[in-house]
Design a protein around this nucleic acid. Structure first.
Lengths: 239, 239
DNA sequence: GGATCAAATTTTGTATGCAATATGCATTAC
DNA sequence: GTAATGCATATTGCATACAAAATTTGATCC
């Protein structure tokens, strides 16, 4: 026991030497990106050998990655029938966004109370970069910065469990958010809401921040709902 | 066809040993129980072959189960060094309970507004059974019913994302809750808090329910904190 | 011609084997 | 006597092989 404790303190730095023994981690990241960014359609069956040959690996690490994705809620594992990219009903999307909203509102209180100025400054930098991406019309960059802002905001609450769960749910919704801000008016509105967010955060006003985040994510659901109704209408009606 | 379709809808309940095509699922459940109920100590390295021979299976399904447990946050996977049962610092436990508390408070509103009487009746039945277990001094049964009550309460909000995330976090904390209600006075206090919960729920009073749940989970943290300080003191101080 | 059943193929689930890395011990040098 | 280095063992990571189940296809019967 004491022999163990003497060599525990080695996890501070781990620069870049990880990837030799992490094929499953690599696959996990790539598959997650493919699902989250829409390269794999919801409901699509994932053929193991197909992905294996595509990635140039064997089935073992792929299957391990699929288990992780199932735990994250991005794929569903049907016994004896393999993995399918998870489909979300309109209700599931709405409910998930509601949970994300609740988490971010929860984070507001702690974040405003005990975030460092540097932490808030990081979000300000992200916000400015997002505005720049908006004005340049760079949607990809805008989306990523948008997500990072929400992630960083939650991180300001300094609650790892909250951050981790929030990240998981956010990943599930990423595909929908990508398609969410379609018209320029929606996009402009989202930007305006974000301006309110960063201002309330810099003022460290938790109530105002909660209100504006609630409004922002409520609007996010409406934006997604439109898209959802349009795309899902042709295929299938659930809930 | 009809013979086939009759046995499709069986995934509502998953008793124990249904399909022989889910060894990894079986292992996952057993390992999770072992971790959650304290049979595997935090920080303990999990030797694959050891568990394999113990379970009588090969390493493949075990490794898949370990990935899932890692995604659930119950084990940590160190590259080239295998899986260790995850340790939680006092701060992590406190933060996780805070998130659980926030989720249950969030569930209160929807639950009080739109739960069915039957759903509330189920929780009443669980509560009465829990009281009976308390009076009989049956701790094991009490703990399980206690957890079920919290799970069912969240389920009343009819938000699958919320239920799933709550269940995951609750599983992480189960070990600590087991050890939480140690003295009889703490136990009695927890029972009293639960009485307030079920009464507020039956009155469909969300504000009162939120208050009593907040108090209950705040007290839960205090109970856990005592235990935590006592047990962790001897080994290591984190955060 | 359509439907049903059976065989073949595909695909998943599990076991085993091999290579690479980590760990522990012993020997040697200082 | 202590520390460092090299070797042996153990354990992890991945690939392959084999078995069972599901899907597809084809043939036969009505």
């Amino acid at each position: 026991m004491d022999a163990e404790s003497s060599r525990v303190e080695k996890n501070a730095v781990s620069p870049v030497k990880i990837d030799r023994r992490s094929l499953h981690g690599e696959i996990l990241t790539r598959l997650r990106t493919m699902i989250v960014e829409g390269d794999l359609a919801p409901g699509a069956r994932i053929n193991e050998v197909e992905i294996c040959t595509q990635f140039g690996v064997s089935r073992t690490p792929l299957r391990e990655a699929l288990r992780s994705l199932a735990s994250e809620g991005l794929v569903e594992l049907v016994p004896s029938r393999g993995a399918v990219v998870r489909e979300f009903s309109a209700k599931e999307v709405r409910d998930t966004i509601a949970v994300i909203r609740n988490m971010e509102e929860f984070a507001c209180v702690t974040a405003c109370a005990q975030a460092s100025d540097a932490g808030i400054g990081e979000i300000r930098a992200l916000h400015d970069a997002m505005e720049a991406a908006y004005e340049k019309g760079d949607r990809r960059h805008y989306y990523n910065l948008n997500q990072q802002i929400h992630t960083h905001l939650v991180d300001l609450a300094d609650n790892s469990a909250l951050s981790q769960v929030h990240e998981t749910l956010q990943a599930r919704m990423k595909r929908f958010r990508y398609a969410g801000h379609e018209g320029p008016e929606n996009w402009a509105r989202a930007i305006a809401e974000h301006r309110g967010m960063i201002e309330a955060l810099e003022a460290r006003d938790p109530d105002r921040l909660k209100a504006v985040i609630g409004q922002h994510l409520g609007a996010a659901w409406e934006r997604v709902a439109d898209m959802f109704a349009a795309t899902q209408e042709g295929t299938k009606e659930k809930h």
